[in-house]
Design a binder for these strands. Sequence first.
DNA 1: GTCTATAACGAGATAGAC
DNA 2: GTCTATCTCGTTATAGAC
Lengths: 244, 244
Amino acid sequence: MSTNHGTPPRAATQGARARARQEVTAAIKDEARRQLAADGPAKLSLRAVARELGMVSSALYRYFASRDELLTALIIDAYDSLGVAAERAEEAFREAGEDVTPARRWVVVCQAVRAWAQEHRHEYALIYGSPVPGYTAPSSTVQPASRVGLLLIRIVREAYEDKGVALPPLPDGLRPEGERIAADIAPDLPPAVMVALVAAWAQLYGLIGFELFGQFNRVVDDDQREPFFAQAAAQLAHGVGLVK
Amino acid sequence: MSTNHGTPPRAATQGARARARQEVTAAIKDEARRQLAADGPAKLSLRAVARELGMVSSALYRYFASRDELLTALIIDAYDSLGVAAERAEEAFREAGEDVTPARRWVVVCQAVRAWAQEHRHEYALIYGSPVPGYTAPSSTVQPASRVGLLLIRIVREAYEDKGVALPPLPDGLRPEGERIAADIAPDLPPAVMVALVAAWAQLYGLIGFELFGQFNRVVDDDQREPFFAQAAAQLAHGVGLVK
DNA sequence: GTCTATAACGAGATAGAC
DNA sequence: GTCTATCTCGTTATAGAC
């Protein structure tokens, strides 16, 4: 209701404050990510972050109420960063590409996830690695965590609308669960597709995690991992019914 | 050169010592596994293990030269325990089962791995979860780590010998790598089979890890996870060319 | 030879008084 | 916000019991 004529106007003052707060928040998270890379999430300590930033530990509590809350912020940031990377890659491919088939879009998304994981291995470990002892993720992480999954669903859905999806029917025992998953997430897709999609989604992270965490070390040559992954991702696309 | 007539004979004496040593070693590892479950591998502490056992920390060094060596022992034990579980399940199925097809044997092994992972979630996290910060596994872990993989290869090989494997050829770019993997691990199998096998192997752990680490929480119903997994494992079998 | 206990070092975290 | 006293940790040196 009150207008503001003064200098500096209230909006600017609040803006400046908000900006400062945002900068400190960002600095805290950056330093926390550095410690994540060095010592892993289990040893993340508010005190150490504060020390490194030249602050006193109590000052940090103005920005994050607890270590767990800082962890949650890092997790949400990681999911969002991964989601944005995947979405951008898919969009760029769709806009620039010739030969845009659903299967190719699927592979592009898989490759984007793999690339992000390799550029952010510690954040990847944070969200898809072992759970942090003593920490349980709050429900605010659920939505960011689903971004990549929803993108994959969108690709399959559009292929399905164009009749570009072909899958054998589900075994009877799984039909009800397939219907439930579909009802929850993508009511327009048949149960068999949803079940295959959830499996492919998990399998994608098996491929990426094995490579990232060294399980391929004496198995797949370093310079062959990219084509190997592309082949496996294409097989996953086939597994959810996307035709070549 | 000196013979021993006394009682107890040397063999028994050594046996007793060796047995005592083995018992203490086992107690140390048991307590370490307990701490693994409570605080994760990053916080595993020799001192805490010693304290809990009523020993003094320096005494532990008679059994493990360092904290990392204790970790290595736990890792090797976990791989071996998992390998034995998978091998036993497969053997039991082969001996008792009617309808023993390669695809069914494959699914049985996958289910055994999943069951072991759920009964030993912290050991599973140790070997297939995020790497432990500051620890790099020595080469002595490589052989135990390959037990399950070799079992899966054996199943596919026997199916291949019976012409029970059908796979499309590899894309040209991956053929050399497929040949290299085959030459290293299973020279009698064609490159396309080996590439598909390595991918399926990684994907299996994606399924298991997602379920274990909570990624399926709002996606697959608790009581439907077993049939869901069985279906996915059967699809993996199909992916390596095992026919129904 | 094999084991355990004492003591210590250097580094880091933590709690609380000020 | 600072300082200090008190913890933990991995690891080693040493001495003595069996």
